[in-house]
Every structure is written in C-alpha cells, then in structure tokens.
Design a protein around this nucleic acid. Sequence first.
DNA 1: CTGATGCTATGGTCTGACCATACTGTGGTC
DNA 2: GACCACAGTATGGTCAGACCATAGCATCAG
Lengths: 233, 233
Amino acid sequence: MTGTGWQPVRKTRTFEDVLAQVERRIAEDGLTAGDRLPAERQLAEQLGVSRSSVREAMRVLETLGVVSSQVGRGPDAGAVLVSKPDAALTDLLRLHLGLASLEPREVIDTRLMIERWAAARAALTGPDVSVLAEAIAGMDRAASPEEFVEHDTAFHCALAEASGNRLIAAFMRSLRDSLRRYAVEAVVRLGDTSGLQTDHRRILRAVLEGDPDQATEAVTDHLARAYPDLCGE
Amino acid sequence: MTGTGWQPVRKTRTFEDVLAQVERRIAEDGLTAGDRLPAERQLAEQLGVSRSSVREAMRVLETLGVVSSQVGRGPDAGAVLVSKPDAALTDLLRLHLGLASLEPREVIDTRLMIERWAAARAALTGPDVSVLAEAIAGMDRAASPEEFVEHDTAFHCALAEASGNRLIAAFMRSLRDSLRRYAVEAVVRLGDTSGLQTDHRRILRAVLEGDPDQATEAVTDHLARAYPDLCGE
DNA sequence: CTGATGCTATGGTCTGACCATACTGTGGTC
DNA sequence: GACCACAGTATGGTCAGACCATAGCATCAG
C-alpha cells in the first residue's frame, strides 16, 4: 500500500484505444490544425477495428474541438484537425450549469477573476481598441436588452482576446455564452444601462492609457454593478 | 445585412438531435447527478432513431463528464448522470497543447491567475489546512522529482479547492494534469527543492493567518521561482 | 474551351447480430 | 430459515454490412 489506493480496472474500450492511437499520431507526426486524418473506413482497417468504434472516437475528438468532419470529397472533406476549444468549453459549462453541479455564483466569480486579469493584461499590451469602441457604440444603438447583451458580450470577449492569451479568451467566451441568460436578466433588472456604459468607457480609457490597476478597478466596479448581490461576498 | 453575417447551414445530425432532447429532459425534469437515463435501446426506440446515434450522443455526454455508462444489470447499470468536468477539461487542455494550438506560456499564465485568486480566497474562508500540511510533509519525504511533483500537485489542488469554487478547482486540477511534464522538468532543473518548500510554508502560513494579500504575493513569488523564464514580462 | 453528366470517396444513418458483464430470481441443499 | 449454485435477463460494447446524401473529380459531347 503506497497510500494512493486502487485504480478501478476499467478495461479500455475500443474507441478509447483509437483515441490514444490518434493522439499518439498527432504528437509523433507533429500534426497541427489544418492537417487531415485518414478516412473513417481507412482508419478502421488500419487499426483493425470496426468503423463504429472509429466514429465514436471521432465524436469525442469533435466534442473536444480537435477535429471537424466534412462530408463529400476533395481536400476539405474528411476529418480535419482544427483548434476550437470554445464550443467544447461552452457545452461543458452549460451542461454542468443545467445539472446544477455548478452554481451561477461560482461561474460569475470565475468570470470576475478572468476579466480582472484580462483587463490588466490588455492595458499592458496596448491592443487594437477599435473593436472595443465599436462594441460600445453598438450598445448605445441597442434597442432591446438582448441586443445590448449581444454587444456587451462582444466588448468583454474582445477585452479577453486583447489579453493575448487564447485560453483565457476561449474561457471568457464560454462563460459569457453560459451566462447569457443571467446577463439579460441583469440588464432588465437594472433598467438603465447608462451606468454600465460609463463603466465600459472607463475600462476602455484605462486600457488606452495603459493603466492596469485602473483597468482592474474599473472591471471590478463594473461587475459589482451588474451583479450587486453576488460580488463582494 | 445586419452585420452578424451568415451562419453555416449545418443540417443537424441525428446524434445532435438526441443530445438536444436529452439536455432538454435534464432541464425540464430537473435531473441531477445520480439520476439514470433510459437504456440505449429504449432511448433509441423512444426517439425513433438508431442505437448508433444514441451511442454517439452518449459518447459526447461522457466526454463532457455528464454521464457515466456502466455495463451489466441493476440499479448502478446503464447511463447515470454524473458531474465530472475534470476529466473533460484535462482532455481538452492536453489535446490542444499537443496540437500546438495552445502555448505552454498561455497555460502557465492561466495557472498563475487562478492560483493567485484561489490563494486569496482560501485565506478569507479559513479552510481546513490539514491536507495542505500533509502535502508539504509528503514533499519533504519525496525521493524523486516525480514523487515531489505528485505531492506538489496535491498541495496546489487542495489550495484551489479551499477557495470553495468547484469550477476553479476543476480547472486547477486540469491545468496541473496538463502541465505535469513541465512541472517535473522544472523540479529537475532547479535541483534543490528547499526554496519551493519555503514558498509552500509561506503560502500555508498566509492562509492560516487569513491574509489574502500575503497569500497572493507568496503564490506569485512561488511560481516565479518555478517558471523563472515565463513569469514577469 | 465549355458545360453537362456520371463516378467516386466521404461522412451519416440504420439494421441486426453477437459478446461480456453483472444483477435477479429460482430452486436445491444444508 | 439460511445459504449457495445456476439459469435468466437487461445492460453497454463491438462488429459487419448495407444504404443515403454530399461534393469534388473525371469524362465526354458540343
């Protein structure tokens, strides 16, 4: 007994074997996004398994945002390696929120953490802020809470992307997608969005001036305004 | 043109339909972890699709850590709703790291962000620190870099769990699993682990004293020591 | 050269079968 | 009554083979 206990002896299923082999091929051959995987029938024959097992493995890879399957024929057809972790993260969060295994509180706290970090980082990297400005203008024009939230999401995702960290940006998009319902509710509850817009402009200014502390503070105040009952503990 | 552009008209595949219906059932019936889904054959008949399509949907749900399938018969057999986002996140990060669509730098930066937040939060909640202390003791006893990293991972995951946010904790575990290789390399490169242990004790002390600023600073210094070439900028 | 048409490789779906597994009920034995 | 051996059965796991829709490609008529 080493103290780690016993691992459940889960006999590896065929599709898991396929997954492992595909992952090994990716690592060994240095495959990246854009490269093609063998066709399902071909892969099944090469690995000595049925096409069903290959398909189940493909479904997993597709769920994880690693491959994309296209029917038909030609260079774009078949299973192509891609790099789209966003949808996978979004599905993950949405389903676990639905299962009540994650509380909105936890997701919103996580968002606050990410956005504080991203804002500070964006202020340091001096990004292109035209997307941010355009999103603010879009919110000014918005005629409904839903439309406002649409551009609001664009603003905050652009802020995360401006941090230069794709993992953070992907996480931000997923969080926003999962929380869309709560965001609309928050806007409706507030009624007046001028305060939110003041915050947005303050965030933009801080990023433009390259002031990370000011950016962090602006984001914190902004989220406290949007979710008054959840921030601050 | 409304500016949103065209969505690709992707004809929904059968298994996606199954997914949507299962998710709807989960939401409408308020199913949570522990509840059972109908058997594959039964679900296929109810939805008027083949078992293959149901199986592909199940594979997706399993990948996302939402269901767990058990063979055999009885109350524990069949597809049971679970809540295990950890494995899904780990697979996601590992595969995208392997695809070179995420740089180690981005993952490590994310880890720093999470851990600073978690440490501060843990200091505020006054958690049970026995796990943290035990992990430090384990590192003292460690005879190899791998063993050291094992307990180091336990320490940092326990810290994340002490924050009380399960999403953050799950993310931390996934990040650590994905970065295990880099962690071992870092320990080997350092050679002497006494500095790391000093940091660990400092973090533990800050949490015990309920000093979030001190905890954040200690974590920052610790990671700067572990990844000297990646932190700072 | 151009356009129409059939060919073909691809993923998507379905059917039906068989296997290993693990609980359930039955019946016999002590 | 308690216990154990064994057949029954519902479950997921796997396979083979078929058919369909799609979309690029090759061929051929004009």
